[in-house]
Amino acid sequence: MPGVGAWNTAPGANMGANHSHKSPVFDEDEDVNFDHFQILRAIGKGSFGKVCIVQKRDTKKMYAMKYMNKQKCIERDEVRNVFRELQVMQGLEHPFLVNLWYSFQDEEDMFMVVDLLLGGDLRYHLQQNVQFKEDTVKLYVCELALALCYLQCCHIVHRDIKPDNILLDEHAPEVFQSFIDGGPGYSYPVDWWSLGITAYELLRGWRPYDIHSSTAVDDIINMFRGERVHYSSTWSKGMVSLLRRLLDKDPESRLSTIGDIQSLPYLADVNWDAVLEKAVPPGFVPNKGRLNCDPTFELEEMILESRPLHKKKKRLAKSKSRDATKDSSPLPAHVQQCLETVRQEFIIFNREK
């Protein structure tokens, strides 16, 4: 599922928005579709999906729109995962989650329209050498703890915590242990471990364990067993105590509920209602004068993408014209069948209805 928002940001510059004073009128009974949005710019991509900033033409509200090519999803056997993500996100709504607003489809793609956070993700700011102060990290921990508490109440373990989703690309030791024959499973404490990893890296600039995608599972387990985490002498005793308890290798004794967190003396001065209402000013405010993401996504979409989103309407019209004249190369029968199944089973969603 998409990531947990760690701060509240307002939209910055008007990035190519439509300046017309007349808002288009759409039929209230009509499902929201691609034509209801103006594409502004590309801001990210994954293995089979991309993300762009869009503006809804009637309300002028701005969102992030993730779109996934149906054929690629079928080829990579990812359709079930996309449907599961949609199903989960439709039932969630929280101030510190990236919430789903609309989902729809066309002949080529599946679309998910979600909250837009223009502040950029924590990984981006770490790469920009931002020095996060302890009070800022303390607030992030509180915000993220509230989000994890909400997910826990919904019986959801995040598991896919990574920099793009605000939290760090790191896993808990019991996740790796589960790869070993007879190893225990894992549950909610894995997300609280990742919260500790995130806070540590924000403060120090690097992770407490030197783990990469190429590191063998056995090496990782040995690292967790043998290596001790080093805490900076410049951090307060309260912060060190919080990190130690979040990074406890034993999930049974790790801080793993909002009650555990709120009972710490270090967080006794936190007004949790104000945090939930986003009424506590953050110590770090991203630059509102520019987009806080890698600009190469936009260049790739404009120059390298064979089927750019902004030319979709013209491309689909041409495709229909070719179909009418029987002058198109048919897809393999099994792919066509899968595409029809996706079309029939896709879950259309509108949070406003």
Rank of each mutant, 00 (worst) to 15 (best):
V82P: 01
V88G: 02
E75L: 15
E107K: 12
N69W: 07
Q71I: 15
G91V: 03
H94N: 09
Q71R: 15
N99T: 03
F104H: 04
Q105E: 05
M68W: 01
N69I: 12
I74G: 06
W101M: 09
K72A: 10
M89S: 10
S103G: 02
K72Q: 11
N81S: 12
W101T: 06
C73M: 14
F96H: 09
H94W: 05
L92R: 07
F104A: 03
M65F: 05
N99Q: 06
G91Q: 10
L100S: 02
L100V: 03
S103F: 05
P95C: 12
F96K: 06
Q71S: 13
C73R: 04
P95M: 09
N99H: 05
K66R: 14
Y67T: 06
L100G: 02
Q90P: 06
F83M: 14
E85T: 13
Q71W: 04
L86Y: 00
N69M: 13
R84K: 14
G91N: 10
F83A: 10
D106Y: 07
K70V: 08
R80C: 04
E107T: 08
Q71M: 15
F104E: 00
L86C: 11
D106A: 11
E108N: 02
V98Q: 04
Q87S: 14
E93D: 02
E75R: 15
Q90K: 15
E78G: 05
V79K: 08
R84H: 08
E78Q: 15
C73I: 05
W101R: 13
Q87Y: 11
L100H: 01
E85K: 15
V98H: 00
E93M: 11
M89E: 01
L92S: 02
I74Y: 05
M68A: 07
Q71G: 03
M65I: 04
V79Y: 01
E85L: 13
H94I: 08
E93A: 12
V98C: 09
N99F: 07
D106T: 09
H94C: 09
K66N: 02
H94Q: 04
Q90H: 12
R76L: 13
Y67W: 13
R80P: 00
K66F: 03
N99G: 06
F104C: 05
V98Y: 00
E75S: 13
E75M: 15
Q105M: 09
E75Y: 11
L86I: 14
E75F: 13
K70W: 07
R76T: 08
E107L: 12
W101H: 15
V88K: 06
Q71F: 10
D77F: 12
D77H: 14
M68H: 01
E85M: 14
